[in-house]
Amino acid sequence: MDATANARRLRQSQTLAEKTLWTLVRAHRLGGFKFRRQTPIGGYFADFVCEQARLIVELDGAAHEGREDYDARRTEALERFGYAVLRFRNERVLADPGGTADDILAALRDARGG
């Protein structure tokens, strides 16, 4: 399966946390920044990417438990491509979507320089 087809499949099978976050960031809703979902970068699929700010937002659910080493290597690889990476647990996004959005917006503004 090629990267485009795989990205499409990932977008169609989003978790509830991914759907929640997408509702917050899609269509320039978060500070006017544009995000894309399930974007291929260096052999990985980043959950949410803002190219303008070079920021990736990753959501970690149950599938990430016990995979902390893999996630750390993945983050390092994405950072080598010039991105900052924010990670949130699915539970945090679902319990506090507004606070999560505030944290992302702060990182976006920092990346933009104010």
Rank of each mutant, 00 (worst) to 15 (best):
R36A: 07
G42Q: 05
D71M: 11
A111H: 09
R29Y: 03
Y70Q: 14
P40S: 00
D103M: 11
R112Q: 14
G31S: 06
A53P: 04
A72I: 10
L16A: 14
Q52N: 05
A63P: 03
G113F: 03
T39A: 05
G42S: 10
F45K: 06
R29T: 01
G32Q: 07
T23P: 01
L16H: 07
Q14S: 12
F33S: 03
D71N: 15
V25D: 04
R67P: 09
G98L: 12
T39P: 00
D103Y: 01
R73H: 08
D102W: 06
V49A: 10
E18T: 06
L55H: 01
R54W: 00
P97A: 11
P40I: 02
A53N: 05
A95K: 12
G32L: 08
A84P: 03
R11T: 02
R109L: 15
T75D: 13
Y44F: 15
R67A: 13
G42W: 03
I56A: 03
G42P: 11
G66C: 10
L21R: 06
D103P: 08
V93A: 09
T100W: 04
A84G: 12
L86R: 06
F45N: 07
L21H: 01
A106Q: 15
G61T: 08
V25S: 03
L30P: 12
R80K: 14
A84F: 05
Q38E: 07
E65P: 07
E68V: 11
G98Q: 13
Q14P: 05
F33A: 11
G114M: 12
R8Y: 01
D103V: 06
R109E: 07
G98C: 09
G32T: 07
T15W: 02
Y70N: 11
D71W: 05
D69C: 09
E68R: 15
Q12I: 01
I56R: 02
Y70I: 07
H64T: 10
R112M: 10
L86Y: 04
A111C: 14
R8N: 00
G113S: 05
I56Y: 02
R29V: 02
T100Q: 09
A7G: 01
R26G: 01
D102I: 02
F81T: 10
C50K: 05
G114K: 11
G42I: 06
M1L: 02
D102T: 15
E51P: 04
G66P: 09
R36W: 00
R37Y: 04
F45M: 08
A84N: 08
K34H: 07
G82A: 03
T15N: 05
V49L: 11
E79R: 15
R74C: 06
